[in-house]
Amino acid sequence: MRKHLLSAADLDREQATLVLDTAQQIEAALAGREVKKLPTLRGRTVVNLFFEDSTRTRISFELAAKRLSADVINFSAKGSSVSKGESLKDTALTLEAMGADAVVVRHSMSGAPHRLAQWIRGSVVNAGDGTHEHPTQALLDAYTMRARLGRLEGLRVTIVGDVLHSRVARSNVLLLSTLGAEVTLVAPPTLLPVGVETWPAEVSFDLDASLKADVVMMLRVQRERMAASYFPSPREYSRRYGLDAIRMGMLADDAIVMHPGPMNRGMEIAAEVADSVRSTIVEQVSNGVSVRMAVLYLLLGGAEVPL
């Protein structure tokens, strides 16, 4: 593994597979245990640096670090020196002085983790930066697909929604193509970036024509995008690009439905779809902890310490 995990593109096929295999081993090691804890990262410090509210991602990383016995510091932008105008660089120097071994960073600006990685000695894990990437989300999605469907090679994955603003989509396209899956992006043309034609993915504007898939991943679409004319109304959006019961009925029998959360029920996904047996939304959350444990373990040189 490299020192940092900033982009899903930082992982080649072998490394990505190692993360997934390690997550699986961790899950097996903890299964049935009363105390869900491994001593692997005892004495190491992991900082959760969250400039943007995301309780679910922060808790997932916090749990992952604690289950590896690391010391965890939560450094949130709210109520700290960060919100008083302290620069990212000054924050980095503070973390450096604390001796952080790993910094998990969530930031509203694309590339902030890359900047941080230039200023500190510890490992940086990108926990979502602006509209850029969210590599651990892609890893947990791949893990979930592999667990449900048994493979990734040749898997047909349709990703639907606001690709333009989605860090989840960017990381998934990169990671899934590395792992041999075939990705199709579906969105109204307004929500696809100029330049998407160079991505390792097919592009379609038609959801109904893209349902012959093993996986359908629905992206969160903010209603506020309507104000900037990305689509005329939430109703038209959900009619054209929402996954409802009728569309779910067109899927293959063993196809699964994913969503990175938080969901807009009734917008991109209907309640009966979100709550159906095809939905992996709850598993995605628990798999997130295992995958993040694997990432921290591998980045912090855990490979020299047996699990």
């Binding site: 590339g111 850029h132 991505w199």
Partner: peptide, 18 residues
């Protein structure tokens, strides 16, 4: 807008300047 709108802005998740 943050950078030229094109292949790189798409990947970097930076708002494009067409």
């Amino acid at each position: 807008a943050q950078m030229n709108e094109g292949v790189h802005s798409a990947r970097l998740g930076l708002t494009g300047w067409p």
